[in-house]
């Protein structure tokens, strides 16, 4: 396999006009052209200019990733497309709410592991906890895997948000 066929994960940030249908355009582009979406987050980031930021985690060969970026850039309401994976170091964070039910030793162990991962308890009953955890996607994967053995009943994840390191703006 050459580097041309190597499938790699990329985190792409897209600055768009916050207008009706813009998310449908982005998602439609991915489904219509058969690209992969691992996660996608979107929220308004500038209310004066009415701009939203979409963070997309996707994977593909270098040729596919290049296509994804130019296709995104072609959409009329898209202002800028930034491939964080290619353009230097970046930080990515995701949040999850994780519900664990149980009692006795398992309940104590869940609390102990949550402490190690710096997860906060945001809801508690006699037989359950909801933990809030923030970290990279991999951190969350590991935490959720451990909780599986300790009575995991429900998970909600935000998908990744990401920002480049250093002083540069978008």
């Amino acid at each position: 396999m050459t580097t041309q066929d190597t499938i790699r994960r990329h985190t792409i940030a897209v600055l768009v006009d916050n207008e009706p249908g813009v998310l449908a355009r982005v998602i439609g582009l991915f489904s219509g052209r058969g690209y992969n979406i691992e996660s996608l987050t979107v929220a308004e980031v500038d209310s004066n200019e009415s701009l939203s930021r979409i963070n997309i985690v996707t994977s593909g060969t270098p040729m596919i990733i290049e296509q994804i970026k130019v296709q995104l850039d072609r959409l009329v309401p898209v202002h800028r497309v930034k491939d964080l994976t290619l353009e230097g170091p970046f930080i990515d964070r995701e949040m999850a709410l994780v519900k664990v039910a149980g009692s006795g030793e398992k309940r104590v162990e869940a609390l102990r592991i949550a402490d190690i991962f710096k997860a906060r308890v945001v809801d508690a009953t006699i037989t359950s906890f909801v933990f809030e955890i923030t970290g990279t996607g991999e951190d969350l994967d590991r935490f959720i895997d451990l909780m599986r053995q300790l009575g995991l009943v429900d998970v909600s994840r935000t998908g990744a948000v990401a920002l480049s390191r250093g002083t540069a703006a978008f």
Partner: peptide, 11 residues
């Protein structure tokens, strides 16, 4: 004129 046509089918 369309960057998305470049390297789409043929490098």
């Amino acid at each position: 004129i369309d960057p998305s046509n470049i390297n789409k089918n043929i490098r």
